[in-house]
């Protein structure tokens, strides 16, 4: 049980990395990765919303939509839940914990339409439908792992970009193109993790 959860957690960070292997959440990856502290703030907010969204959408899907044969409402229901949740968290933080709001809250409006959040809530449902033993706890661990994976990729990439600032880049490649090519090289390094997880826990 514990081993399976650990494998699931590590896999969602390294081999199933949402940014570098599944291409979810590319916008913040390219947009907010110029400085390490913004990158960390953004990815902490994403991790928080991912776990919270999975915690809410999973029971709603399993106990409300599925028994009533309403699976076709999944997309609409999930995106509305995420949008409401993000708004709610933002309002609560603003009112009661202003210090946290200042460090995390400003990223929240950016997350509503982040495909990584909607992606993780849908992927855990999909995993659960293939393998029934993949339950609520696994889903939450997977969501948390996905968030940490997001954070790891963002942190590494922020470091790469800070180096890039000091480089002399040909004019045509300045800006977005060189950022994408740098991302490509970071993605190569994540390819190396494939096959690692089973070896680690075997």
């Amino acid at each position: 049980m514990f081993k399976a959860l650990a494998a699931c957690f590590l896999a969602s960070i390294l081999t199933e990395n949402y940014i570098l292997n599944r291409f979810l959440g590319i916008c913040p990856f390219l947009g907010v990765s110029k400085k390490l502290n913004t990158a960390m703030g953004m990815s902490s907010a994403v991790t928080f919303v991912m776990v919270l969204a999975t915690a809410v959408t999973w029971p709603i899907y399993t106990y409300l939509l599925l028994p009533n044969k309403l699976e076709y409402l999944q997309t609409v229901v999930f995106i509305l839940i995420i949008a409401t949740l993000v708004q709610l968290v933002e309002t609560i933080l603003k009112k009661y914990i202003p210090s946290l709001y200042n460090s995390l809250g400003i990223y929240l409006p950016l997350i509503t339409t982040n495909c990584a959040v909607l992606g993780v809530t849908m992927l855990v449902i999909e995993k659960g439908s293939i393998d029934p033993s993949f339950g609520y706890i696994n889903s939450l661990v997977n969501a948390f792992g996905a968030g940490i994976g997001f954070l790891v990729a963002m942190a590494i990439f922020a470091g790469v970009r800070q180096r890039l600032e000091k480089c002399n880049i040909p004019k045509t490649l300045q800006g977005l193109p060189i950022t994408l090519i740098a991302a490509s090289l970071v993605a190569v390094s994540f390819l190396g993790f494939q096959g690692l997880i089973d070896g680690l826990l075997a």
């Binding site: 291409f23 090289l185 993605a187």
Partner: peptide
């Protein structure tokens, strides 16, 4: 995946 980033970068 890396090829995706690379080709996109060149196209942009």
């Amino acid at each position: 995946p890396p090829g995706g980033f690379f080709v996109f970068g060149i196209l942009v």
